[in-house]
Design a protein around this nucleic acid. Structure first.
Lengths: 340, 340
DNA sequence: TTAATTTTGAGGTGCGTACATCAATTTTCT
DNA sequence: AGAAAATTGATGTACGCACCTCAAAATTAA
């Protein structure tokens, strides 16, 4: 049988109370005794029974995911995944809720974060665009003892705060390599579309993309990023204008996570199947497009993995444990028609 | 507060004993009462506390992974991942052990499986090549109440048995598309290397590979598969001979999971950087090769994910729960230099 | 109606740990 | 040495549920 705390007490030659003090790092234990107990832990291979710990503590974990209001299919999928995680973890004393906040006003976000109480929430995963106010209130949240995870979207990395998501420089570089190789030696221009270039994410992706293009594909040149600002009419205009002025576009790279609107407009100006097209994130649109071969590759970060990883990290931090780094790295996925 | 069984008893208007009978599907409860309790469960949103259940049952899970003896770096990584899983799950009353058996003798495997006792093992994940004896003993294992997972390697799928791993047809097809696009319109031949073509896995990969090559890349023709049989000298011979007889090789596809030996020999015959090279599985060798750009892409199934998934499935089955299909699908990863 | 059977209730114990209290002992300081 | 402080032990309750026993009540069969 597996050793229990009683066995440990016997093995260490101390009482149960002392074992408890050592295991939970309570005060008033001499160093000598701590060593004695730790030695016994190693010797008999004692491992705490997590089920018993959680039961005795009768602890409940309450986590929140914060998302922007504006968004299309990818955001939707994230919301679904949070719901699924909530269902799956109910029996594990863990409640997960998604919340949407208008992120265009950083004060709203900051206010909301400031209003969070340790008594009602244990951890928050935040997907918010770059802003000093938000960054500050995240730091203060952390100081108040609420665990904070930067989710999929980078504030400039705050130290102490965990980050869940891909390296966007690498993601852009991956897109660049795929696009470069898929074009197949032809010479021409690449149309680059993004919702905005204000965000750190977008900047890093572009940087990664340009870096590999310059290094490896001198036959290709990427046009300046077209910014849609999430405005459909504007998107149509700038894309049409670009196609008019540039004759030799051989590829399209959609940097932001919602490719539906831009590509729908691009399809009106050209034959997508003749171009190499790479987009980010798997959505119903990008999925059906890759099946039709209007898109050639999707660079994705799996939203389900991301949500579950954020939850595991918040749980670990709440328990004062270290998250398992190896398991929590979110991979940059390359999706083709064949490996959907 | 979260409702407990007591609250549930009160809400259903029955005793704790009856609630227990219903929750654990014990006999001697009238249908009417079962309905009453289930209705109350829905009404008050009762969810069993898993920690308490596990504690009360004081259940330990004991799982085994069965691997072949022969193998190189990828097998090694699998063994590591099993060890890691064991460490991570110790506090969860779950023990995971890896075992290696000479798989060239199906009787040995069958005998070992037959010797397993329900009292000492709850579940087994098996990575074994195709053979009727093994398939039979897996089926019998299952009938004796031990949960069985087909791990990464296909017996022809046994129904009732869970499978963890990728769709090898799709994996081959993915390799084909990558290779086809990366070659970039050139005309020529593709060298295909496999350890054996006897296994179902290999056959399916080849099938997927050929299918897409025929459909999409008429400029390329794949040579017959070279079988290494894990014999280094033989590998060197057949690869050298192929390079002598074929002048226009433009790409190499290594179908099996250990690319080190074949590619080392191929490098002696040609300049790998001039060819498009795709291999399977991430190993120290394939990783360093992709960094050097001697390899262009790796088609991989993440061994850590696979191991954890198999464990989750065995746990769920042992508890008589259904595994969460969505989470347990192993993705076909495409790794480039940029998204390692 | 009576007997046999099924269903339900009441109550207890144990799982491994957390946490609190109080007394007893040891150590440290003056 | 004596007092104060720090350390340790003994003991009990609680967490939410599983599982067991025995008796009481309800239902069914004869």
């Amino acid at each position: 049988m597996r050793p229990t705390t009683k066995d440990l007490a016997k093995a260490a030659g101390v009482s149960l109370a002392t074992v408890d003090r050592v295991l939970n790092e309570r005060p008033n234990v001499s160093k000598k005794t701590v060593l004695k107990v730790n030695e016994a832990i190693r010797r008999i291979g004692f491992v705490r029974n997590l089920a018993a710990v959680n039961l005795a503590r009768s602890k409940e974990y309450r986590f929140r995911f914060l998302f922007p209001v504006a968004g299309d299919q990818y955001l939707n999928e994230l919301l679904n995944q949070v719901d699924e995680a909530n269902d799956a973890l109910k029996s594990d004393m863990t409640e997960v809720q998604a919340l949407q906040i208008p992120m265009d006003d950083p004060h709203l976000v900051a206010n909301y974060l400031a209003s969070l109480d340790r008594g009602e929430v244990d951890g928050v995963a935040i997907m918010a665009p770059e802003s000093p106010q938000v960054r500050d209130s995240m730091a203060r949240l952390y100081e108040r003892g609420i665990k904070v995870v930067q989710f999929l979207s980078g504030q400039e990395k705050l130290e102490n705060l965990d980050f869940v998501g891909v390296d966007n420089f690498a993601a852009g570089a991956t897109a660049g390599r795929i696009l470069g190789r898929f074009v197949g030696g032809k010479t021409g221009k690449i149309m680059v579309v993004s919702e905005t270039m204000q965000s750190l994410d977008a900047i890093q992706r572009r940087l990664g993309f340009d870096t590999i293009l310059n290094a490896k594909f001198p036959n290709l040149s990427a046009l300046p990023s077209l910014e849609t600002h999430g405005d459909e009419a504007r998107t149509g205009r700038i894309i049409a204008r670009t196609f008019e002025h540039q004759q030799d576009i051989v590829a399209i790279y959609v940097m932001s996570s919602e490719a539906r609107v831009p590509l729908t407009h691009a399809a009106a100006c050209c034959d997508l199947e003749q171009l190499a097209v790479v987009v980010h994130e798997r959505t119903p649109f990008s999925e059906s497009s890759i099946r039709d071969e209007r898109i050639d590759a999707i660079i994705a970060q799996n939203p389900g993995h991301a949500v579950r990883s954020a939850v595991r990290i918040m749980r670990a931090r709440t328990d004062n444990r270290l998250p398992l780094a190896s398991q929590e790295k979110i991979r940059i996925e390359v999706l083709l028609k064949e490996n959907l």
